[in-house]
Design a protein around this nucleic acid. Sequence first.
DNA 1: AGCCCCATGTAACCCGTTACATGATTTA
DNA 2: TAAATCATGTAACGGGTTACATGGGGCT
Lengths: 188, 188
Amino acid sequence: MESRTRFAVLGALAEGPRSVYTIKQDLEATVGHFWHESFGQLYPVLRQLTAAGWVVLQEEGGPRDRKIYALTPQGHDALRSWLEDPGEYLPPPRNEFLLKLFFGRHVPRAHSLARLRRYAERLRATQATYEAIERELLDPAAEDENQAFWLATLRHGQRALQGGLAWCEETQGLLAAPNEARQQGANE
Amino acid sequence: MESRTRFAVLGALAEGPRSVYTIKQDLEATVGHFWHESFGQLYPVLRQLTAAGWVVLQEEGGPRDRKIYALTPQGHDALRSWLEDPGEYLPPPRNEFLLKLFFGRHVPRAHSLARLRRYAERLRATQATYEAIERELLDPAAEDENQAFWLATLRHGQRALQGGLAWCEETQGLLAAPNEARQQGANE
DNA sequence: AGCCCCATGTAACCCGTTACATGATTTA
DNA sequence: TAAATCATGTAACGGGTTACATGGGGCT
């Protein structure tokens, strides 16, 4: 469905010339919590982008035999026009965690409660990494034109986490409370 | 990556025998906010499930020439063992909305702010549909063994919405406040 | 000398969407 | 009788992951 991979790449290259390998690293370190690219995708895409004139091979065969790509003015235009496009693609949702929870009645409550606990645990772990990112981002030495936008996406994650944890608490009560007895089915 | 489609189908069939068409409708009406299946996926999967003995064709060629499938005991076992599996697959994240926001510095702030507004608008619209679902779900006449689980997933959506809206408010302030002047780039 | 990280790439595979084809039945 | 909905299905296409292949460079 009209892949967005190229725009992620353009965005990364807008910070300066980079190799594919570095682009991947950068994406992981910055947008990794809400965007992912694999090498199998990136290498072909960089060829395409070069063919389209949105990117140029700036330097080749350094010490590690790496290829440095740079954004062209046309590439920057393409990035901008994608950013100006009001729409964004929403993938058909597929949340296996919620799906399992939804069908919880077919299984003893303990399973759903345990699942919930593991989920909360994951959230708390993520929370810690977000805090690290926050410290880095709020460091006054690191202030740049990206700060507000980067902070915005970070805050999005933090709000989601916060809501998620509150939900875990609430839901634990909801599932623990009543009819554990009213189980049907063969297992214990 | 080991499709979960079959389990969504098993879960739907666990509520009673149904046609593929009805399964789709049911999934949309119940888990539609966090799970999606297309016909192009469902029809082949029902053949597989039949071949695997997890489902049987119970009735064929009624008034609308529809085929009613029913869960077998083995199918129910399969559903259960999937539900008991502690893991769940997390797809590599791809949130185009956040990605565009993240790269916002390449474009006048007005674009990001407008995007934010549209996002909030979408959330508010969803909120309304959640409220309708809630009323239905809390109707004492409709109480059944699914209620707690279904309510749990609904609450998850509601918390996410609530967090999302709070974030919109906060972020609007963050992006509107300072350096609109400090734009770089060719466009106004 | 050996290992791990850097670095580039290809190929197979699969999941899932989209579009298409077909026709019966209800409703306006 | 025309349109909308019910209902089943197939085929093409594409995006993305995974696994594999290959080798240089730096560190111990």
